[in-house]
Simulated assay, not measured.
Amino acid sequence: MDIIQIIVLALVQGVSEFLPISSSAHLVLVPEIFGWDDQGLAFDVAVHVGTLLAILFYFKDRISKLVGDFLSSIIKRKNVGESMLVWAVGFGTIPAGLFGLFAKDHIETYARSPLVIAATTIIFGIILYLADKRVGFKNEANITIKIALIIGVAQALALIPGVSRSGVTISMALLLGFSRITSANFSFLLSIPVIFLAGGLKTLDLIKSSNHIAWDEIGLGVLISGVSAYLCVKLFMSLISRMSMTPFVIYRLFLGAILIYFFI
């Protein structure tokens, strides 16, 4: 890949991974617009690592406290601080793991068409709009294992290209009466094990592959996707309490229309 392709694709992944706008839709559209070849598995791994490092760095203090509370709860055999939130993230990850394990091949075969991506981009954009109208005031203290599983089932749907992992989990949390800040926070925390697992699977595929690895491209991809993802999450969280999801909904509808124009 040339330097422009690396920069653009890493930026696209970094910015779109945590916004409710579907990174998969962008990664289909952008190469088509510029006439680029597929970026390859190694680069996919790189940008996933970058976004994972970004969210870990953003939540580093929170994660440290959560891990401490969780370990204390195990030792004391009772809830300590926010230990229940760790359990919620763990249980919330199960549906995506199971869905990915049993449906990954079918998704790769049947659900990666431009028509599917355009349809899911538009449909789940409308769902985000409707969910945002039901925004409530529940916070993280109200997240139970049952609620985490429900949001986790929604997250599993994001394995279908165009749905948007952050978009569908934020939508479900809003529909369940949580505030925008809490919905976004839990969505991002829930993304950590999922991105880790997805990146791990891609890494295993890469290890099995005999293709040459361009480590300079890998390093640049990690850096750009990580920095852009961190800045994007930071900006999004600073604005989310003061704005609705409508701008993202409008963007998704526009993006879906562009996909239809280019591919249908």
Rank of each mutant, 00 (worst) to 15 (best):
M172I: 15
S83L: 09
L29Q: 09
E32Q: 15
N142K: 14
L201N: 10
G50W: 07
V163F: 05
V194T: 05
G40I: 13
I122Y: 02
D38H: 09
F236R: 05
E32K: 10
I122C: 07
G81E: 08
I250W: 09
I192V: 14
A103V: 09
K76S: 12
G177P: 07
Y110S: 13
I123N: 04
I117C: 11
S179D: 01
L159W: 11
L9I: 09
F124S: 01
I7E: 00
I3H: 06
G14H: 05
I126K: 03
V116S: 05
G90Q: 08
A119D: 07
L174S: 06
F263T: 01
L239Q: 14
M172C: 15
L220N: 03
L197R: 05
I143V: 14
M237A: 10
I127S: 09
T203H: 00
I213E: 03
S16Q: 04
F262K: 15
G40Q: 06
L239K: 13
I4A: 14
L204S: 12
I74Y: 06
A46K: 01
G68C: 06
F196N: 12
T246M: 15
S72F: 00
V12M: 07
I258R: 04
I94K: 14
I250T: 11
G92T: 07
K138M: 05
T182R: 03
M237V: 09
Q13E: 15
G81K: 11
L9M: 12
F137I: 09
I143L: 13
V222S: 06
T121A: 03
I240P: 06
F254K: 11
Y261N: 13
V163P: 08
G97I: 15
T169G: 04
N79A: 13
G221H: 07
A173S: 13
F102Q: 04
Q13H: 12
I123M: 14
R62E: 15
R134V: 12
A88Y: 05
S209F: 06
S225T: 01
L66N: 01
A198R: 00
A42F: 14
M84A: 10
M245P: 03
S191Q: 05
E140F: 12
P95L: 15
A198L: 00
S225C: 05
T182N: 08
A54T: 07
N79M: 01
G162S: 01
A131G: 10
I75Q: 12
I75H: 11
F102E: 04
L255R: 03
V28Y: 05
I75L: 14
A118F: 12
Y58L: 15
G221K: 09
L11E: 11
G125P: 10
I122R: 02
G221S: 12
L41T: 04
L52I: 13
L27E: 06
V89P: 03
L197A: 14
I207P: 09
F186N: 06
E140H: 00
A229H: 06
G81A: 10
F188P: 02
L66E: 02
A214F: 08
L101D: 08
I127T: 08
E17P: 06
G152Q: 10
W36L: 05
P247L: 11
L11K: 08
V233Q: 05
L190F: 06
I4P: 00
